[in-house]
């Protein structure tokens, strides 16, 4: 409240980096440092191919993480994405399967593939619309709503696949999208789409009105409304986009494996949330960036792959995730508090 500090000659106050920039740089530095540390501990870790793998193996979670991050910045959870991945994948298979199969699980609706994808996406969007309806219209906490819709989406997938999977009687072009390699390298289409989506998201977040509105809503919902921002509509759009991306991921995964598996994407919603939190996005809203989320994903990938490299049991991944998120949150709180002291 003091006006005294304002009167210090301005030339003497060097402008500091914003808290957000500071945290994002911190995340990048930690990611790089962890990679170097892992290189010392794990043989053959320090390889270009390994760096590429860290990104390409995580295309699905990073894709999901983009709108999970946007929603988190706006002050909302989205834990339904893993369920939507399963649902849209299963739907795309079911719609595309020809109707003359030998049993229930091998016969579908026989739609042409493009139409099947489109309808699967609409199914995903329906879940997103449910999220928006319950969160925005009824004002129910997003954590409970999206846990519920996650179960609904996965539940529908389980009913369609009778609790297992559908993988027969599919047209040949079904496996095309998920396995298409690009530019003569081994990089597949889903990875390229993820990178494109990520770049667009960075642009939207930094340069576009849509991105800034997300921050305004997260930073101060009431001031946003009084400044003429249509909060309900914006949150609705975010849930729809998030569902659309999750639907796309589900369709691509189904294509990659040529199957619709009702348990696909299990825990992906938690991983997407974990990488967003690791990337410095705060649930208090209005703070964080998708760049941070991207490097949060790298941190998680380095930690888990290094753990595998050190022949730790895969069961360690849960503990490592817990510790990583815990450290990220404590460090972030501490670092920001210390800077602003």
């Amino acid at each position: 409240m003091s006006s005294l500090t304002e009167n210090i000659p301005q030339s003497l106050q060097r402008e500091k980096m914003s808290d957000e920039g500071f945290i994002t740089s911190l995340v990048v530095i930690v990611a790089v440092a962890l990679f170097l540390l892992a290189s010392l501990l794990v043989p053959n870790f320090f390889q270009w191919q390994n760096v590429v793998n860290l990104v390409t193996n995580n295309w699905a979670v990073i894709s999901l993480g983009i709108f999970v991050s946007f929603l988190l910045v706006s002050g909302n959870f989205d834990l339904s994405v893993g369920g939507i991945v399963a649902l849209s994948g299963v739907l795309s298979v079911w719609f595309a399967q020809s109707p003359d199969g030998a049993n229930a699980l091998s016969s579908g609706l026989g739609m042409p593939y493009p139409l099947a994808i489109l309808c699967a996406l609409i199914g995903a969007l329906a879940i997103g619309a449910m999220n928006a309806l319950f969160v925005v219209r009824l004002g129910i906490p997003s954590i409970i709503v999206t846990l519920g819709t996650m179960m609904v989406a996965r539940g529908i997938a389980q009913v369609i696949t009778q609790g297992s999977q559908r993988n027969t009687n599919l047209p040949d072009e079904f496996g095309f999208l998920g396995n298409l390699t690009m530019f003569g390298t081994s990089v597949k289409l889903p990875v390229v789409l993820m990178l494109l989506l990520f770049l667009v998201a960075v642009f939207v977040e930094r340069k576009m009105v849509f991105g800034r509105i997300t921050y305004w809503i997260g930073a101060n919902p009431e001031a946003a409304t009084l400044s003429g921002i249509n909060r309900s509509w914006h949150i609705t759009k975010l849930y729809l986009f998030s569902a659309a991306v999750a639907g796309m991921v589900g369709i691509l995964l189904a294509s990659e494996f040529k199957s619709g598996f009702s348990n696909r994407g299990t825990l992906m919603e938690f991983d997407a949330l974990v990488i967003a939190l690791l990337g410095g996005i705060a649930i208090t809203g209005g703070f964080g960036s998708v760049i941070g989320m991207f490097f949060g994903a790298i941190i998680l990938a380095v930690v888990t792959s290094a753990a595998t490299g050190m022949v730790l049991s895969p069961d360690w991944q849960f503990i490592l995730k817990a510790i990583a998120v815990f450290l990220a949150i404590v460090t972030q709180t501490w670092a920001v508090a210390r800077r602003n002291r």
């Binding site: 609904v152 529908i156 009913v159």
Partner: peptide
């Protein structure tokens, strides 16, 4: 395999 769907729907209905 109907269980997840039913519990999820019940959760949403109860919350609402």
């Amino acid at each position: 395999y109907y269980q997840t769907l039913v519990i999820g729907s019940a959760l949403l209905a109860a919350a609402a």
